[in-house]
Simulated scan of single mutants.
Amino acid sequence: MEVVNDFSASMYLPRTLFETVARFDDTTADDMQCGDMSDQDLFSLGLSDISAKVDPYRLIHYDFPMTYQMDSIYNTSVSGRKISRDECIDILFTEMKDLVQMFSFWGAYKALIVELIDHFRHRNGSGFYSQRLNLAFHERINSYFVDNPRLIIEGIIRDEFNSKPDSIHLPSLLNSIKRSLLESKLPKFDSRIDRINGLGISVHDIAVQKITLVNLQRYAMGWSA
């Protein structure tokens, strides 16, 4: 058995093969900044048509579902009954869960968006963890799609071993992989099926990814990494 990851090779591994400019858990990033906004702040952004069931600005539950945008935050022509802040919150989150069903009605991950909404409501900004989401991303990494980074890495290692059966120069191999990954497409939930299986509505984009080669071994009948 010939082992590539011997004492000299261990000097080069683990090796980061690709890393986005954005960093994990960077709470200073622009899109990680948040804070409370007043009614006027939200309304100034054009957020007047919040709900078909309630007016969260005036805490009014409509007698009939709204189908048009309010002209003013102080519009009093719409009939309804006064409700408490907690009642309004319950209605808004229930309505949100109902509305997302049109984007999340098929497959094993259709309930993921409800997990996210419940976390958004009750966890006070803490990090979100889901074994269901981890499994979905693991499947996406290992699925076939054009310019999949995993397939690119496997192809380069396989070609290197086939063309150099006796020995390889690990630093050159690692640099070749890093260059090729610049042309890869990072795995995301952006396929057509993701529009209805709960993944697209739950994870609009993935801003941070990192690919690391931890170990590489070559055997008489193959290799592993």
Rank of each mutant, 00 (worst) to 15 (best):
E2A: 11
D6L: 11
S8Q: 10
S10E: 02
M11K: 13
T16M: 05
L17D: 02
E19M: 03
T20V: 01
T20W: 06
A22L: 06
A22D: 02
F24H: 02
D25C: 15
D25V: 15
D26P: 00
T28C: 10
A29E: 02
D30E: 14
M37E: 15
S38F: 00
Q40H: 11
L42S: 06
L42A: 08
L42E: 02
S44N: 10
G46E: 00
I50C: 12
S51A: 05
K53C: 07
D55V: 00
P56T: 04
P56V: 04
H61A: 15
H61G: 10
Y62G: 01
M66T: 04
T67K: 09
Y68L: 15
Q69K: 12
Q69T: 13
D71L: 12
T76H: 15
T76Q: 11
S77P: 09
V78S: 10
R85H: 13
E87H: 08
I89S: 14
T94F: 13
L99D: 09
M102V: 12
S104H: 01
F105Y: 09
W106N: 14
G107R: 08
K110H: 07
K110Y: 05
E115I: 09
D118P: 04
R123D: 05
S126F: 10
S126K: 11
G127L: 15
F128Y: 07
F128D: 02
Y129S: 13
S130L: 00
Q131I: 14
R132W: 05
N134Y: 13
N134L: 15
F145S: 00
E160Y: 07
F161T: 06
K164E: 02
P165F: 07
D166W: 10
I168V: 09
H169C: 14
L170D: 01
L170E: 02
P171K: 03
S172K: 10
S176H: 08
L181N: 07
S184V: 01
P187Q: 01
R192C: 13
D194I: 02
R195G: 14
N197Y: 00
N197D: 04
V203L: 06
I206M: 09
A207P: 09
V208L: 03
Q217K: 05
Q217M: 14
M221T: 14
S224N: 06
A225R: 07
